[in-house]
Design a protein around this nucleic acid. Sequence first.
DNA 1: GGCGGATGCTGCACTCTGCAGTATCTACCC
DNA 2: GGGTAGATACTGCAGAGTGCAGCATCCGCC
Lengths: 205, 205
Amino acid sequence: MQLSPTSYALLGLLSLRSWTTYELAQQAERSLRYLYPRAERHLYAEAKRLAAAGLADSEVQYTGKRRSTTYTITSEGREAVREWLASPTAPPVLEAEVLLRSFFAEQGSTADLIAALEATAEHARAARRDLAAFARARLEADAPFLERTSVVVLTMRFVVDFHRQIEDWATWAAAEVATWEHADGRDWTAQRDVIESIIASDPDR
Amino acid sequence: MQLSPTSYALLGLLSLRSWTTYELAQQAERSLRYLYPRAERHLYAEAKRLAAAGLADSEVQYTGKRRSTTYTITSEGREAVREWLASPTAPPVLEAEVLLRSFFAEQGSTADLIAALEATAEHARAARRDLAAFARARLEADAPFLERTSVVVLTMRFVVDFHRQIEDWATWAAAEVATWEHADGRDWTAQRDVIESIIASDPDR
DNA sequence: GGCGGATGCTGCACTCTGCAGTATCTACCC
DNA sequence: GGGTAGATACTGCAGAGTGCAGCATCCGCC
């Protein structure tokens, strides 16, 4: 059976401890959301796949009449994680609807674009608030898996900077667009230095 | 019919000129890849959907025996793009397998992680080379849609910085991990200042 | 005893991907 | 004229992943 990065995301969590599917979905929402977001719906399906492939054991129990399934990683599961970590990695993927809007901004008004940019900056600020709260909790030793702090910090460094970059860009872009007469911004002499700085940042020079 | 951002990506391209599906797929690969990547396969299906919804007209022609379909936006299509640009935007989505690996690095070796980080830095450098070449062509007026330079520069600014950030992070992280005895990096006193800088960057303070 | 919120899922329609396969046309070389 | 590499122009299919709605149960609290 072919496994996807999502499979390894769940196996990774299972390598830390056993979880019910509900806990797994919650934990993925809390900690993996910013690295590798996946819908809750899919995690329920994926956990079943892992069990079917023998990478996790599933145990059904009841709280009164309510059923729940606890998954525990098997040694085959641990081996699969090790093999994954030694395999070639996939490049990061960015999917930014706001960039699509910016790219086709000429078809709308500058006010539309500025509104989208401001909403994006606010999203990014909310993410950073959330991440700062995580960091505070960890510093105060009020977080699970304290012994994982080194790897958590490694990934958090990237994610925090990513959201700061979004906020900075959206703020810059909104100010830029505010100077345009129309969203087509035909006179791009003002953008010439931006182009030149992009060229100058060519890693080959 | 409910449209997805992909629909608007194609409608956006169609708002610039008419294209065959093949050209559309090529253009999406060239210009939209970095903002909103979509598989070629899907664009063929999506173009048909646009035509079925009356947002584009399709015209079949033949080069000898070989069939091709040219799509042209309708006034309903232009209206749909305008409405989309005035609607609320979705936050950017990041999907980084290398962050997943970093997050679960304790399950593998430090060498595994360093290899993944170096491959990631190289991917990011390749992207920046590509983008710098784009910028050079545009400065030398050797690019289609020169009149779109303002909006192109707006999005390029973000994308270039995004890839630079990936490269910087991967380089920093690889150096960091190289000092760890094992991938579990239990002694995180050295990470304390990173956590503090994340807390200090809280937008509320 | 009632109610809100947390727990613990499932069904379904739809979007999107990756790969493989098919066929045709054009440019160029010998 | 014949061969072939590469560009053009798609389609089929299996499976990954999403979003929403729905369903039932349990717990704490008033």
